[in-house]
Each structure stands twice: as structure tokens, then as C-alpha cells.
Nucleic acid binder design. Sequence first.
RNA 1: CGGGGCGUGGCUCAGCCUGGUAGAGCGCCUGGUUCGGGACCAGGAGGCCGGAGGUUCGAAUCCUCUCGCCCCGACCA
Length: 567
Amino acid sequence: MYWSKLFIPTLREDPADAEVASHRLLLRAGYIRQLSAGIYNYLFLAQRSILKITQIVREEMDAIGGQEMLLPALNPAEVWKESGRWEGMGQNMFRLKDRWGHDLCLGMTHEEIMTYIARGELRSYKQLPQIWYQIQTKFRDEPRPKSGLLRVRQFIMKDAYSFDLAPEGLDKSYDAHAVAYRKIFTRCGLDFIEVEADSGAMGGSQSQEFMVASAAGEDFVVRCRATGYAANLEKAVSRPVPPAQPDPEGDAPEEIHTPGQKTIAEVAAFLSLPETSLIKSVVVVTDDNRPFLVLLRGDHQLSETKFNSAVGAKEHRAAHPDEIREWFQADPGSLGPVGVTKLKVLTDKALEGRQNMVSGANRNDYHLKNVTPGRDFMAEYHDLRQVVSGDTELETGAALDVVKTVEIGHIFKLGYRYSKSMGLNVLTESGEEKAVIMGSYGIGIERILCAAFELYNDKDGVSLPASIAPFALVLTVTNLKDEALLAAGNDLYAQAKAAGIDVLMDDRDERPGVKFKDADLIGIPWRINIGKKVAQGLVEVVERRTKEMVEKPLAEAIAYVADRLRG
RNA sequence: CGGGGCGUGGCUCAGCCUGGUAGAGCGCCUGGUUCGGGACCAGGAGGCCGGAGGUUCGAAUCCUCUCGCCCCGACCA
């Protein structure tokens, strides 16, 4: 294509409202324009990239036997009421009424509709397994859309669903998706992290997330570069950093006066002890109104998810100050486990084996020294703390990192949740009705583009992987008035086309500097400069990401690029 | 929903505090000179200052309401 005929509205300055790198560059490079909060127009360049991404997704989904469909985004309420999610989705679901007053919604995901199709048509185990997928627009009324295309209200998702007769079948479908996802993200040129995800309160189903490291991300992943261990922060386990100071000798708790010292940091400083020598007391109440005292090492944080699964709760909240006063006869800042009988005490494993530590005395302005778990209070140990950077891997002791990430894909064993609530059964070989077991598998299409922008940008713009860049090669004719250059450019263009390269010819009547800047900004991985050296039969081939430049004879330049693109 | 910030030509912003009838740079159009990292000269087009109401002789500027966008938090199948 000829740039002079295209609509690629690049900006010379950074847009004011864009803070994260991908947002700023998607706007500057002319890929997208905003329509409203969390709603974007995808212009020519974005659409080209998206088409390349979806093509990769399609090929790999087809390779595992996926069958592409296209379901409506506009859904009747009834189907969602059957699964219980008409209520369950709450305010995140866009809802509307038709002219008759019937409730409708815009689909956030399509478990319900896929199950609806399946139960109407699948009758026999002989029809299983099935993998159905679509690449389609989803709507979610996010409370706070943000960060450009990273959190939006309308986006494209590849969502796939598997239907199997038995758990072993689901395992195969799930594993096939994991393999396909690795291929998809690798082909898209992304450096991704695969993590075990929290399977949530819905039971022990398996779930994996595919993440890309990015400062703009909202999910934390714990990763070990040495062993390859990776897990969602909420689920990660580790060996804590050892206490900063060995535990002292002592035989019984003893009160010490600590006037006005409330936080861990204050108490530690007051007593000249490291935070690791203190016991942190956290009081929480579950959604079914059970209070707990949770004990952690002073420098550790409670993991919400681990606590919930330890006590079998869906949610919990911090106890109110008046509740705490009633249960402890003391205020937050002076709480501890010794003598506590009114609520259950849970102790984090990092305190196991420790002795003679400092905790609150349950008397305002007093703490206790010589507090030993198991001796001075009943200690029931659980893994309750959140991993922090600096912790080490449980088995090997190798260093762990906590990295911020963006989620690009998620695979999930659904089990029987939808088949049972919506009545999706088939007849088995022995003629009995059996619920179908399902899996669901999602990829955020725009997030792949965003992740690439986040991963591969520099001061000049973005450098996209060739597989998802809107063009693989740009031909920069430095001076359009020079007919020899233009002729050489047109010749290279024809060669590139013939070689099957997705080529963009910059035939704009602009100065060379403008063309170089734009080419760098929009991220075309390869550029050929057609300049004065054409007189000697030479052009320059430049790789966007490395800025490396080589001179090649006119007749060899395209073959060189084609070769580099292949491998 | 709580907290903060911002709405002025296409873009980035100044002007607002201390009211007097709208500016700069970039971009755009025309002509000319240029042509290897966002050129230069000359001329030109383009804004009822987010909206409504109020105060005032007079409002981009002060007051009230409202709408929108961004950021932090809460939330996130």
C-alpha cells in the first residue's frame, strides 16, 4: 500500500490524557482514537494488527479441533437467569429492554449461550468431545475503565468452550488449549508467564493464566527465574526471608509498657527490635459472620485469598473498632493472642518454631515479650501470608520476584456448573443421562496488541513483532522528487509484493526526517531506506528494534528482509 | 461510590488569581525555496473558551448547577 493514500494520523506530541506507554503510543502512532471512557475506535493500523492476531488465534484454535462460530452479543435475560448470572454479574453487565419491555443484556462472556446451543443439539456421547469458539465483541460495564485499551468496556475476545463426557476428556481439552495458547502467544512475539491461578470459591477446578510483565498491569505474579516457578500472588507460596535477629531466651510472657506505640513499625523502633521479631495481629470477620484473629510475622501481609480458602469463606472484612474492643478489651495496636478465647486464632506458618516474640498484650499501651506460639497460646498453623520480593522458592531456595503483569489469556476447567444448572446432558454408551463436563478458555485480543506495545517500546515509538505488525516492511523513499529513487522504490515494492511481504511504500512528499520518525513511531519491524546510494545500486536495510543497519544491493534487499522475516 | 485533577482552533498548552470582548507552538491550506532524523520564508483558514443558569455596564476569567475525560482508591465473572 502507498502511505500517501492512507489514513495514519500520527501525533507529534504525546496526548495529554494517556499515561501508560501502550495507551500513549497507540494514540500517537495513529492506531486508535477514543470515543468515550473505555470505548475506542480502532483505526486502520490497529485493525490490521488485530486481523493478524485473530488469524494466528484462528489457526491455532483450528489446529486443536476448534470450530469457529459467531454468537450474538445481544442476549435475552432468560438464558442468564437459568445459570443464575443475571443476578450474579451485578452492575458489570450492560442491560437494556426491547420495545416490549423484555430484558436483554450485552454478553460479557458466552458460557450460557454456548451451553444453550449444546443442550439443544447434543444428544449422545458419540458427539463428544466438542470445542467451539468465537472471536467476538464483549461488553463489560467496568466501574473504572483505564489505561487505554487495557481495561475497557467493549473489547474483542476469543472465547472457547469444550464439552466432554468425562473429567479425563476435559483434561485433554484443557491441555490442548494450554498448548495452543503457548503457540499463539509465542507466534505473537510475546514473552509471557504462565501461572496457576486461583480457582476461586467455585470449587477445586483447575485454572491457568497467561500473563505479560508490564508496569501498567494490575495483577501480581510471583516468579522464579531460576526454576521457572510462577504463580499468582494470591496463590504463591515461598520460604520467607529468615528473621533478622535470632529469638531470645525466655520462659513466660511478660508485660512491657509501650505508651502510644501502635503500629508494627512504631513498636519495633521503640523496642529496638526488627519487625521480624514481632507478631502482627489482624482481626477479620467472614461474610458468614465468623471472627478470626490472624497472626503473622511483623513484616508480613495477610493474603486475602489464602485466608478465605483456609476458613472456607467467600469474603471477609476487617473487624470494626467496637467489635475489637468487645472481644479484646483493648484497641487495635495493642492486640495479641495470649488469653484470647472469644474467637478462633489462626497462625501463619512463618511463626512455626519461633519463640519469645513480641505481641500486643490486649491492654492499651502494653505489649508482651516472650510470647511463644503453642506454649502461650494454641497455634493452628496455615499458610496465610502474601509472598514478597526477596522470599525464596520453597523447594530450591532460589530467589523469587514479584512482577506486575497484564493478563492476556485464561483457561479454566468449568466442570458441571453450566451443564447442571442449564440441563446439558447426553446419553452414555449404557444409555443413561449424564451431565457434560465443560471448560472455558479466553484470550483478550486487544490485550495482545497492548502487551506488545508495553513490552517493545522506546523513546521513538513501538517496535512490533513482525507477526502482528500492521506491515512487515516499510520502503522509505527519501526524496520523492528524485525520479531514480522513486523508480527504485517502486521496483522494490513490486519485489516485496511478489515475495509475499506485507509492504508499505512511504511515497509521501515529506522530508526524510518526517518519514523516519513516523516509521519508527508506528513500529514497522523492517525498513528499507532508498536514498542517494541508489546511484551505486545500494539501499539501507534497518531493523526497527535494534536500529541495526546494513547496506544491500538493490537486487538483494528484499530477499534479505524476506529471509530475516522467516527466521 | 469516595478522593484528586482537567475541559480554551485538529494536537500540546498559555490567558483565569486581579472581569474589558481570545493567544502561542505544532498541524492544516496557497505560493516559493529546500530534501538523510519531525526544514525555511511569505500569505491564509480555523475557536459562540464543554453545557445551562446567575452576578455584572461587561464573563474564558467570579458564583451555582450540570455533563464529559484522566488519575488514585473501592470493585474486577
